[in-house]
Amino acid sequence: MESMPERAAVGTLLRHVLELLDGDVAKVYDELGLPGYRPRFSPYVRALVADGPASIRELAGKVGVTHSAASQTVAQMTRSGLVAVEPGADARQRIVHLTPRARESLPVIEAEWAATEAAARGLDAELPMPLADLLTQTVLALRRKPFRQRIAESGLDVTPGE
């Protein structure tokens, strides 16, 4: 049996869950003939299909990640031939478009997304509460009171040394 991360190591547990989920989804993409397609690409593809070309900043907002994270993912997608990036009206702005290769792959991507949603519902049925609900509540709680503040309240002096 594979070992489990220590229960108190919440960050390690979260990374482990993400590795288990994303690793299997990536295997499915390989089996469906899309090697190198990463699960993190799908929210961007879906946003571009739904709303058309967008700036990296707009994509970051739609996907719910930082501009930096969106920029890194778009760079990976560009290298994979899934998106093309062109200058926007503002010289600092870059507009992201799906490539013909990405559009040809949409039926597979959409079928996998639907299957993943069904699999997630099955997983949720085994859990005390749906995983997405738990994670959403966790994000909201951390926005109300950041983890750093919670650490400081535990008694650890987190003021910078002098």
Rank of each mutant, 00 (worst) to 15 (best):
L21V: 14
T73K: 09
R15C: 04
L34P: 03
S68I: 12
G122S: 11
L131G: 05
A69Y: 12
R38A: 08
G33K: 02
V85P: 02
L32R: 09
F147A: 07
R148K: 14
A54C: 01
R144Y: 10
A111N: 04
A102M: 03
Y44L: 02
L140R: 10
L18Q: 15
L98G: 00
A120Q: 12
T159W: 14
T138Q: 02
Y29K: 03
T99K: 00
E86A: 06
V85E: 04
G23Q: 06
D124Y: 06
M129C: 12
V96Q: 00
R57Q: 07
T138G: 08
Y37P: 00
P5F: 01
S154D: 07
P128S: 08
Q76P: 10
G122Y: 06
T12E: 07
Q137R: 15
E2R: 09
L135K: 01
P43L: 10
H67A: 05
P39N: 06
T136F: 11
L13C: 03
L134V: 09
R57T: 08
T136K: 10
V158W: 13
E117T: 11
G81M: 10
M129L: 14
A60L: 04
A70P: 00
R148A: 11
R103Q: 12
L34R: 06
K62H: 04
Q76E: 08
V158K: 15
R143Q: 10
E19N: 11
T73V: 07
S105C: 05
T66C: 01
D157C: 10
F147D: 06
A84E: 09
A70N: 01
P35R: 05
L127F: 02
D30F: 15
T99I: 13
L13T: 02
E86F: 13
A152I: 07
L140G: 07
D90L: 07
A152C: 04
V85W: 03
E110R: 13
Q93K: 14
P107A: 13
I95W: 00
A47N: 00
D30P: 05
G161P: 09
P53Y: 03
S3C: 14
A132F: 15
E31S: 11
T159E: 11
M77V: 01
E110T: 03
G122H: 09
S55T: 01
E153Y: 02
A111K: 08
R121Y: 14
A141D: 11
R150G: 05
R143H: 13
D124T: 14
E86S: 12
M129F: 11
A120K: 09
V25D: 04
Y37T: 08
T78F: 05
V10W: 08
V45G: 02
H97R: 03
K27S: 11
G64W: 13
Q76T: 14
L106E: 11
G23V: 04
S42T: 14
V28N: 06
R150P: 02
A152E: 06
R79S: 15
L21D: 04
E110K: 11
A141R: 13
